[in-house]
Amino acid sequence: MTTNSTHTYQQIARAIEHLTAHFREQPSLSELAEKVNMSEFHFQRLFTEWAGVSPKKFSQYLTLEHAKTRLRKGDPLADVAYDSGLSGTGRLHDLFVTIEGVTPGQFKQAGSGLDLLYGVFDSPFGEYVLGAINGKIALLHFLNDENDPESILASAWPEASLHHDPTVVQFLADQIFPTTDGMTTEAIPQKSDKPLSVLVRGSAFQLKVWEALLKIPEGKLASYDQIAEAIGQPTASRAVGTAIGSNPVGYLIPCHRVIKKTGLFGGYRWGTKRKQAMLGWEAARLDS
């Protein structure tokens, strides 16, 4: 990964946008390189460094048929068993992430009396703001140019006291998107003595949905209907979609792995391009 992961992601995202719009035409390397104002050699090297596979191979992960195939292969979420000995790129997030919901009283207080420490960090998918309360992740929100981190944090925890303290929050960021000498490497939580703890404000229904998302392994997909089945409310797929759209902790609670049952990628709170980048990136890493 380059020393400026956000800039790299922005360049790659433009190529992904073009690939997604024109995958049936199988855009050439020269066409893609031209879209991001690079030489073919530099673009091929940068893209392969980011995704782990060539642009041509990556484009296969963005086709409708590939998404349908992945979706069809998905096991029932309730039947998925996890092996705690998994390591490397096959590591599953739910082994390292636990969701903790606030009490009804805390929900009503909206963070009153709590200190919310935060910082803005780099990742393979652009900059994100990370907020923590008492050492627990309270928010992970990917940023666009127009985003104001404090407004985002205040919206999620309106009564909490905000403190910009990236040095304190850095230890959490390093477990989500580890860095080496300032360079972002893999987007996999590092194994530690205990899982990363996520503290969220949500209804009982939302918590059930977000917990179900943790059961979707990296490289697999689920539909909204499958999530509704997994939480025991098969007719609630629309409400499931709303709950997924309000997920406050991006990537760690992997709402990007939920697509429409037709195989279409569907929307994403942090942008469709970012969702496509995440899915293609995870599929490439898993297959390679």
Rank of each mutant, 00 (worst) to 15 (best):
T63L: 01
E40H: 02
G85K: 15
E34K: 15
G85R: 15
G74H: 14
P76I: 09
E49N: 08
S39H: 05
D83E: 13
L32N: 08
M38W: 05
L86W: 13
R72M: 09
E34T: 11
L77M: 10
P55L: 10
F58K: 04
G85F: 12
L77W: 13
F47V: 04
H42V: 05
R72I: 07
S59G: 05
A67M: 11
H66Q: 05
Y82C: 08
Q60D: 04
F43S: 03
L64M: 02
A81S: 14
L62F: 01
G52W: 06
E49K: 11
G74S: 15
G85E: 14
P76R: 13
S28T: 15
K57F: 03
T63A: 00
T48G: 01
P76T: 07
Y82E: 09
H66T: 08
D75N: 11
A81I: 14
S84E: 09
A33C: 06
N37F: 09
W50S: 02
V53P: 02
L32F: 08
W50G: 00
A81D: 08
E31W: 09
E34L: 13
Q26F: 07
D79K: 15
E40D: 06
E40C: 05
V80K: 15
E31K: 14
T63G: 00
Q44G: 00
F58I: 05
W50V: 00
Y82D: 11
Y61E: 03
E34F: 12
R70C: 03
D79Q: 15
F41P: 00
V80I: 15
N37R: 13
T48N: 03
T69P: 00
K56Q: 10
E40Q: 11
L29C: 06
K57W: 08
L64G: 00
R70D: 01
R45V: 00
